[in-house]
């Protein structure tokens, strides 16, 4: 039996909205470590790994680890029936062929119950090695979203260059070229706006903007984003979910053969 009650139902709504364009379906694994998902996009270029730890929920009960095969589009349709301030309870029997979702309003006078039919999904799990990255950029998530949106007008690729001075995003295409440089600026009033760089070594990598823009749909979940880069390894883009979880995206770089 799996049962998890999320007092901030909006977290689950935003989480599913943020990944539904990248992956169409996946196995949500429930275990004593929480509710997790690892799934690749259909072209196997990008991967999302998310975790909501048990302390995201109250209560959280999972007697035995099991996968919940879910169509993201279907789950998204059902979660759109929940209000942002609803409490959401997820429940599944073991073995699970359905996921029950209960939405309770804060006034405690309206209860909605939905049932999602689960799927059998053969999912391929990738082993992601622990990596010490050459460059780590902590920045405002809305600034990152804005940069992706702006440079997408020019090209389908963006180069990210991290040095001691700061981080520069640049793109070039048929209409011309553009670049946006952010300097380290820890002395700003709002903590969300600061750009902080941890640098072992200068890095310059090129990525598809289309995927970065899809990752940026996670912006409503967290005011900050972290970009982790090393030469010739996939980019890690991380959004933390309060202190109770994360959404991590990996994107393979474009490299010379």
């Amino acid at each position: 039996m799996f049962e998890a009650r999320l007092s901030q139902g909006a977290v689950l709504k935003k989480l599913i909205e943020s990944i539904r364009d990248l992956v169409s379906e996946g196995n949500f694994d429930c275990s004593e470590n929480g509710l997790s998902l690892q799934a690749m996009d259909s072209s196997h270029v990008a991967l999302v790994a998310m975790l909501l730890r048990p302390d995201a929920f109250d209560p959280y009960r999972c007697d035995r680890s099991m996968p919940l095969g879910i169509s993201l589009k279907s789950l998204s349709s059902i979660l759109r029936c929940a209000s942002n301030d609803d409490v959401i309870t997820l429940r599944a029997e073991d073995p699970a062929d359905q996921l029950s979702l209960v939405f309770e309003n804060p006034q405690n006078d309206k209860v909605s119950e939905y049932v999602l039919n689960l799927m059998d999904i053969d999912s391929e799990h990738l082993g992601i090695p622990e990596t010490v990255y050459d460059a780590v950029v902590h920045m405002s998530s809305s600034e990152f979203q804005r940069i992706c949106r702006d440079l997408q007008q020019l090209s389908d690729s963006v180069s990210i260059d991290v040095s001691k001075e700061g981080v520069r995003f640049s793109a070039a295409g048929e209409v011309g070229s553009g670049s946006i440089a952010l300097r380290q600026n820890t002395n700003v009033d709002s903590g969300d706006e600061a750009t902080v760089i941890e640098l072992q070594q200068q890095v310059n990598l090129t990525f598809s903007i289309k995927y970065l823009s899809m990752f940026a749909k996670t912006t409503p979940l967290c005011g900050r984003v972290t970009l982790c880069m090393s030469s010739d390894v996939p980019l890690l883009v991380e959004y933390k979910i309060d202190e109770v979880g994360y959404v991590r995206y990996y994107l393979a770089p474009k490299i010379e053969e």
């Binding site: 690749m40 072209s43 196997h44 270029v45 990008a46 991967l47 391929e124 799990h125 990738l126 082993g127 992601i128 090695p129 690729s157 090129t206 598809s208 390894v233 996939p234 990996y250 393979a252 770089p253 474009k254 490299i255 010379e256 053969e257």
Partner: peptide
């Protein structure tokens, strides 16, 4: 030119 790699080129199946 630059080529888009797949993730499996970097990460191994579990």
């Amino acid at each position: 030119g630059l080529n888009q790699k797949r993730l499996a080129w970097f990460f191994f199946p579990k």
